[in-house]
């Protein structure tokens, strides 16, 4: 399951959801990305995320499919938020379910690394000195 949404999500609900996929799940690994207060030495007041929705959903689906092919895992859920996000709030959640922990850990790392490379989502940092769009050169 892939979701791009404005509202916050519940990690517990997502973990419960992915656990229902199979009775053979022995490990669920989650990665939670959170809005950090300090960035590049500046105090961040608020973040804003913008997405190219159609392409972002397509790319997230592709990453999920790639992870399912590459690792011995059972399912992947990825949720990314957009819009205004306060410090300490959730930004992105990746949950990977597998029979064993090793593949779950590796697939989770793969998904967040690929998300940063492939998914057209942008972060604007609003600091006390002004606003800046962050662009990470690959």
């Amino acid at each position: 399951m892939i979701k791009l949404q404005r509202e916050d999500f519940s990690i517990e609900e997502v973990v419960n959801e992915i656990k229902k996929r199979s009775r053979n799940i022995g490990a669920v690994v989650t990665f939670l990305g959170v809005a950090r207060e300090f960035s590049r030495g500046e105090k961040v007041v608020e973040l804003e995320y913008e997405a190219y929705s159609e392409m972002a959903v397509k790319k997230l689906e592709e990453i999920r499919e790639d992870a399912l092919k590459k690792f011995d895992i059972i399912d992947v859920i990825i949720i990314h938020r957009y819009g205004k996000i306060d410090i300490n709030e959730n930004i992105v959640l990746i949950a990977v379910a597998a029979s064993h922990r090793k593949d779950a850990f590796e697939a989770c790392m793969f998904c967040i690394d690929e998300l940063k490379k492939r998914v057209p989502i942008w972060k604007k940092e609003k600091t006390e000195k002004g606003e800046i769009w962050i662009e990470e050169h690959p």
Partner: peptide, 10 residues
């Protein structure tokens, strides 16, 4: 067509 800045999601 879309002209995209380098991404910064996650």
């Amino acid at each position: 067509i879309a002209i995209l800045p380098f991404f910064s999601g996650g």
